[in-house]
Design a protein around this nucleic acid. Structure first.
Length: 675
RNA sequence: UGGCCCAUGGUGUAACUGGCAACACGUCGGUUUUUGGUACCGAAGAGUCUAGGUUCGAGCCCUAGUGGGCCAACCA
């Protein structure tokens, strides 16, 4: 027996194929090549997961390479942030590299290209060059400097490097083909003059290499076996290979670029430029604002590396455009936090609850599980007293029997404490409830082992003792954008889709245990969601972020109770089922083994009696290659005619449908058609 | 007047390389539960973009079409 085949994504498949065709394991090497011009986001998480994941899978080194060829945009701050993010995710790079470390080598190679007649100095304006470049549908033409002599090119390039010219005066271009259908091959720029300070090389250079010239050659220098990037670089591959041809010695590893689809998430944006705008315009507080899809934002929000890695893993790798539903991200963080987060009680929208038969001034300490998913997490103590806060939403004066919470006259359990019964309410002048009065069953204390403690009641509420509660600032986050695809509308600026309620700051009341919470700690506020301690928090002023709410099937149910119109759904379903069953059966008909096929045909015959004539006629348009469906159609047609005592000739199109089947090459189809 | 890439349930990825379309999220039921959480069980939902072709047999191979994406920065 062959063992179950573990399916590989197409990149793993490429690596496997290469391994089978002569690459050694030792040759495998990958790289993650961010430009240090912004913070990493969840999309980069996928790219990181792919390259570093391959590294882990094949035990191959992965370089973290900063693609820093544009001194105007790049900064050390970003380098530091990127390093922190990658290592926080739990990945270990082999070497930290910088493209700028290769400037000299790149320059030497460029000189070589000039000598070979493969590169030249152009001295036109960018507008002129763009003009000559043509358009995607129109070939370009040569510019006037294309055939400068090698000597002149060498001299000019040397002087460009020496700083003799102003920015924009000259550029170095590869000499390839101005008529290539791929625009990138129409004599792409290799160098431009930039009199700018570079974050690493300072003022050592005033000419800087362009991406295409830099990236592939950096891969080559580092001997990267597989240079993986996103789909928009597909057209660059031809140029990547061309440049590589010019410097490849034939003695070492030839690198290759392969492309995958980048990650998109709904209700957010992934463009660094636009994220920068959110930061600069103060829409958010910074790159690490917990509403940002950046890794640092997600971290601050309370996401864990495990959750992010699982997410990327579930998303998969392919070449088609995709939009991932945020619910998948949320699933992954809940899954992880459910296992590890300590459960605590906190009330975010308090209403006072007075237990009228609980002795005044009395208090006791109750034991509570830290995590029911993990017995080793232990227990802690929670103080209980006569006056508590409960969630305003957890009480209704009267409600239907689908409401499991506190009402007047009903019983609920206070988590880890007693069973109480709603007795009366106190309201202010406007009718708002200010106090709820209840009585408790003294025998019912959790874990006491009494009969009363084992009673089951419909609902359990979380609570906090007013006199012991500590206050905390709680930041409730919602999605940053109201629109599923904020940058998908060419007419509207993405900023206009900002959700005005993406942040709500409230005061919450927490059990005293929380006084010791330190920055970064994650908790589950029971029945509410997962919360972590924000960077802004201090022992004097605790600040929590809501990472994500708990799944809430009650919240989903509520809106349904209102409108409720009579829906003819069951009827529809029944109608559809005979036809859809036949369709389903028919689809595989031609591929089934003899015995099973005959049995299926007789099943179809039984079902077909209940079809309408319209449904039967619907089969006549079936595509000719769908033999199974055509067979099912023929069988249904005969069975239908028989059941309704109809002549085939009286059903429009039927004879032709049968005739075509009889003439078909497929014998199975002929068989069912001939009667 | 172009070139390249892509097309499988609502979403995303599979289908051991041509053999009865699977997994996850989501949705809807149910069981358990001192969290309306978790866990567990179950269901609905895809004729694999269209039309041809090759084949005993096509989601997979071929052709044409349709739809979507990318390509004209001295950005990466």
């Amino acid at each position: 027996m062959s063992e179950a085949h573990k399916s590989l994504n197409f990149l793993e498949q490429i690596v496997e194929d290469d391994l089978a065709n002569g690459y050694t394991r030792e040759q495998l090497r990958f790289r993650f090549p961010p430009e240090p011009n912004g913070y990493l986001h969840i999309g980069h998480c996928k790219a990181i997961g792919i390259s570093f994941g391959l590294g882990e899978k094949y035990d191959a080194p992965v370089n973290l390479r900063f693609d820093d060829t544009n001194p105007a945009k790049e900064e050390q701050e970003y380098v530091d942030a990127i390093k922190e993010d990658v290592s926080w995710l739990g990945y270990k790079w082999d070497k930290v590299c910088f493209s700028s470390d290769y400037f000299q080598q790149l320059y030497d190679w460029a000189v070589l290209l000039i000598k070979y007649g493969k590169a030249y100095v152009d001295s036109q304006s960018s507008e002129e060059m763009a003009e000559q470049k043509g358009t995607p549908t129109q070939a370009g033409v040569a510019g006037p400097y294309r055939d400068r002599s090698v000597a002149e090119n060498l001299d000019l390039f040397e002087r460009m490097k020496a700083g003799e010219f102003k920015e924009g005066e000259h550029v170095l271009r590869a000499k390839i083909d101005m008529e290539d259908p791929n625009m990138l091959m129409r004599d792409p720029l290799m160098y431009r003059i930039l009199h700018k300070e570079h974050h690493r090389t300072g003022d050592a250079w005033c000419i800087y290499p362009m991406y295409d010239w830099t990236h592939g050659e950096s891969d080559y220098i580092e001997q990267i076996s597989h240079s993986l990037c996103s789909l928009e670089f597909k057209p660059h591959r031809k140029l990547y290979d061309w440049f590589l041809d010019q410097v490849y010695t034939g003695k070492d590893l030839r690198t290759k670029q392969r492309e995958f689809a980048r990650l998109n998430l709904n209700y957010t944006i992934m463009s660094k430029r636009k994220l920068l705008r959110l930061v600069e315009e103060g829409v958010v507080t910074g790159w690490d604002d917990p509403r940002m899809p950046t890794i640092s934002g997600l971290r601050r929000r309370g996401y864990t590396p495990v959750a992010l890695r699982n997410f990327v893993d579930k998303v998969g790798v392919a070449k088609r455009e995709n939009v991932i539903d945020v619910s998948l991200l949320e699933f992954n963080i809940r899954e992880d936090l459910n296992k590890i987060a300590t459960r605590v009680m906190g009330v975010l929208d308090p209403v006072k609850l007075v237990i009228t038969n609980y002795p005044e001034g009395n208090e006791e300490v109750l034991e509570a599980d830290n995590n029911p998913e993990d017995p080793s997490a232990g227990t802690r103590y929670v103080p209980f007293s006569r006056e508590l806060y409960i969630e305003r939403e957890d009480f209704k004066e009267d409600a239907g029997n689908k409401y499991f919470r506190l009402t007047l006259g009903s019983e609920v359990r206070l988590k880890n404490a007693y069973i109480i019964k709603g007795e009366s309410v106190v309201k202010d002048a406007s009718g708002t409830i200010t106090e709820i009065h209840c009585t408790f069953d003294p025998e019912s204390r959790s874990g006491s082992g009494t009969e009363a403690s084992k009673r089951t009641v419909k609902g359990t509420l979380h609570w906090v003792s007013i006199q012991h509660a500590i206050k905390a600032e709680v930041r409730l986050y919602d999605r940053l954008f109201n629109n599923e695809s904020p940058d998908g509308d060419p007419e509207k600026d993405f900023i206009s889709f900002i959700n005005p309620d993406s942040l709500k700051v409230i005061t919450g009341y927490l059990e005293p245990f929380m006084a010791n919470a330190t920055v970064g700690d994650s908790f589950q506020f029971q029945r509410l969601g997962y919360f972590n301690v924000d960077l802004d928090s201090s022992p004097q002023n605790l600040v929590f972020n809501r990472t994500v709410g708990l799944r809430d099937s009650w919240a989903k149910q509520k809106p349904k109770q209102q409108p409720e119109q009579g829906q003819p759904k069951p009827q529809q379903q029944q109608q559809a089922s005979a036809l859809s069953t036949i369709n389903k059966l028919g689809k595989k008909l031609a591929n089934l083994p003899e015995e099973k096929r005959l049995a299926t045909i007789s099943d179809i015959e039984k079902l077909a009696g209940t079809l309408t004539q319209e449904e039967v006629i619907g089969f006549f348009g079936t595509a000719s290659k769908k033999v199974g469906t055509r067979m099912a159609g023929i069988v249904s047609l005969y069975a239908f005619a028989k059941a309704h005592s109809k002549e085939i000739s009286n059903i429009p199109g039927a004879e032709e449908f049968i005739q075509k089947a009889k003439e078909d090459k497929n014998e199975l189809l002929q068989d069912v058609a001939i009667r």
